[in-house]
């Protein structure tokens, strides 16, 4: 399966990656090649095989309900691109 530039642009938008027209073509080529590699998977019949999400078959460990984290806002916001009044600033969010 190969990807065209329209699909590439759609994927790039989903992933929030701005790409130019030339880049779209280049990505269409390289992603198509990678998909060619990936599609070798189809050579194997996997019907009836249980998908494997985790290497270990362990169960989720549960944490006791305790407040353990102190306020570190100043430290965390010292490395933020834009803050005011303790808030992270972003271009206006439109609902």
């Amino acid at each position: 399966m190969s990807l065209d530039t329209t699909q590439v642009r759609k994927i790039a938008h989903l992933a929030r990656l701005r790409i130019s027209a030339e880049e779209a073509q280049a990505y269409a080529d390289s992603l198509s090649r990678i998909l060619g590699l990936i599609e070798q998977m189809n050579a194997v019949d996997t019907s009836g095989v249980e998908p494997m999400a985790h290497p270990s078959e362990s169960a989720l460990r549960l944490r006791p309900d305790e407040v353990t984290e102190p306020n570190q806002r100043e430290k965390f916001q010292a490395i933020a691109p834009a803050v005011e009044a303790g808030l992270y600033l972003v271009p206006k969010v439109i609902e």
Binding site: R63, D65, E66, V67, T68, E69, N71, Q72, R73, F76, Q77, A85, G86, L87, Y88
Partner: peptide
Amino acid sequence: LTKSKAFSGASTKYGAAPNTQACAV
């Protein structure tokens, strides 16, 4: 109504100053 968050040990109390109950996670 837990004391701490679903996936972190930060407090869930309502009404705190902004981002004072937002831990690393």
